[in-house]
Design a protein around this nucleic acid. Sequence first.
DNA 1: GCCGTTTTCGGCCCGACTGTTTTCAGTCG
Length: 574
Amino acid sequence: MAMMDRAGVARSLEQIASYLELKGENPFRVRAFNAAAKSVQGFSGELDAGLADGTLAQLKGIGPAILQIITELVNTGRSALLEELHADVPSGLVDMLAIPGLGVAKIRQIQETLGIETLPELEDAARDGRLAALPRFGQRTAEKILKGIAFLRQASGWRLSHHAAQEAEAFREAFAKLPHILAAHTAGEVRRRCEVVRDLVTVLVADVPPEEVFRQLGTMPGVGEIAGEDERRATLRFAGGSSVQVIVTPPQNLGAVLVQATGSEQHLAALAKVAASKGFNLAGVALWQGSRFVPTPTEESLYAAIGLPWIPPELRESGDEVGQPVPTLLERGDLRGFLHCHTSASDGTNTIPQIVEACQAAGYQYVGITDHSRAAAYAGGLSVERIQEQWTHIDAINATLKNFRILKGIESDILVDGALDYPDDVLAGFDFIIGSIHSRFNLSREEMTERVCRAMDSKYLTILGHPTGRLLLSREPYPIDLDQVLDKAAATGVAIEINADPHRLDLDWRMLAAARKRGITISIGADAHNLAGLANVEFGVGIARKGGLGPSAILNCRDVDGFLEFGRRRRVSS
DNA sequence: GCCGTTTTCGGCCCGACTGTTTTCAGTCG
């Protein structure tokens, strides 16, 4: 069995790159490690199998040296090079790389002139003026760094949803195999499909008392500590630093315990209120009617007992959902089109035929290819000539396909003045266009709003991509008046994207109700850069569900003609 | 460190903005 998974290997390679960069190594060697990390991330298969059959060695950017390191990581979970670098370079310097405005050169300057090697030291220096006094630094730089540190501090302790979901599932599987465990359920924020997660929670159904279960857990490999919180709850801490809260219940009380463990607090408070109004008590982890224990073997039985329909976990947030009719929610199988996908023509890894094959296998009826536009030079944005080539290529493949269609799309930069990135006669040749902001994030709120609204005035724009530009836990959204943007989308008939990249999940689910109230159509865009990116869609579906959206709200639930008609209507009417 | 209808060595992505300077290095996407 592999000692480290794909994400872990990719992270280790990125760490090596960061360390090498901070050591002042050859920048191309640094880039090689970063490129290899990306390649591994996009590898659609098990790493140990890929090592065995040689497919991993054939990946672009993986040569003999890095293959050796990957082998070591997969087989042992460790890398001698990484450990050597870790001992050599203060890890605080790596943390500093995550601060916007700080690159290697400035970090090394800070280290060499001020002797600073940790974030708290850096914060002190930014506060007391030592930082601003350095050559090529100033007051504004110091302020920007303070802001960056504050953001990092707030982000620490949280993890991205895809990492959390993977970790939670690994725990769940391991627990489910233990003796006397009848079932294991993931609860908490992961089950509610929150975009970022602080705590992992697992509910174990057991036919022995909790203390017996905890005794078993203590003997699992890697468990460092068990901290009991009460007779049925404990937090397991592992040697690697991860932790999970475990709640043990007998079968007849699973419903109440699972609801409690899933949250949110506001949802539970609203439930307790309803329960009280019906003569029940739901203050603890069981349902009581006076002094009588009411068995709730399932969540459905709990909700039913207090006169409510079962509420899907994604909706259990503000408490307002309690007492409301439960909407039909989107499911992955409702999606007919796979949208927002980059190929090797720009910054993706796969060719159109490879993407088509994967989309067909996943059950889609069409795929919208959207490489970067020409202004995104760093990402290999397509010139007008290269677009023509891609169209010819797509026409040729489409001619060979049955019951599947490739759509000619583009992720066009929205330029600083709000224009799309090609002249109208080129724009007119696309089947659909996603417009996104990738540069000049530092406009004022008014300017940014104006810029995006102007882009929506183009009759060629079909979908507004990742509307706030946020990168979860690493970059704040750019300033923008979303209410005004939504008004404009409603007025112009432009769809708004839920970008399903787990680093973005943008538009935020909290805004979806407001979007739907205005009648805005929502598009789920994978923002895939490789075949592994097909899995992003599931996260986008989770966000749509949290926003209470069903298939009728979603652009790519339409068949290909319906999808094309959506964009065409804008072009003829304006 | 990786790559090669091309060369097993010598390249490797680049243009614009920012904050600092007073002409430009560093950062970013």
